[in-house]
Design a protein around this nucleic acid. Structure first.
Length: 153
DNA sequence: GCCAACGTTGGC
DNA sequence: GCCAACGTTGGC
């Protein structure tokens, strides 16, 4: 059982969208490191912090879980898709994904509040220059985040 | 809109 | 394989 933080732009897929859709493919990852986490390390049932990025209020917006093992991202084969990759083939797909199931929406846990918690000092997403859309979360960080979410700020 | 940080590309 | 140029991310 591992824990992850996964970024989504709410203008594309927000936590509300994810809750409506149930388990859905986490399409569009085009970064090898993030892909490799999904391919090599994610297991069904892993905990996911659903993070809103590139928006007015960046931060953790919900809790989700990994709902499938890895399989090819269909959007890479769709020439009309923004995520189309002409260099990828069905025989040898370059991009894979997992299904993610949103479990609940939380209050918005912003970056400033996260940075104020010493238990989160080493959290990858808080490091300077960290842009990776999928990052590992330690069990300690997971617990600390849940604890912060329980506080009514 | 700015800009730092990082990833990718491609010429050599 | 190096590395400069370019593109992208994402908070501010």
């Amino acid at each position: 059982m591992k824990y992850w933080l996964m970024k989504s732009e709410p203008s594309e897929v927000s936590i509300d969208d994810a809750l409506r859709h149930g388990a859905a493919p986490w399409f569009g990852v085009r970064n090898y490191q993030a892909r490799n986490f999904m391919r090599d390390q994610m297991q069904i049932g892993d905990g996911v912090l659903f993070y809103h990025s590139s928006c007015d209020e960046p931060g953790i917006a919900g809790i989700a879980e990994v709902a499938s093992t890895a399989y090819p991202d269909a959007t890479q084969f769709d020439s009309k898709s923004y995520y189309f990759d002409p260099k990828s083939t069905v025989e040898n797909p370059r991009w894979i994904l997992v299904d993610v199931k949103a479990i609940r929406k939380t209050r918005l846990l912003g970056l400033a509040e996260m940075r104020s918690d010493p238990d989160l000092a080493s959290m990858v997403v808080l490091q300077k220059g960290s842009r990776l859309s999928i990052t590992p979360v330690t069990a300690t960080e997971w617990k600390a985040v849940l604890k912060l979410l329980d506080k009514s700020k």
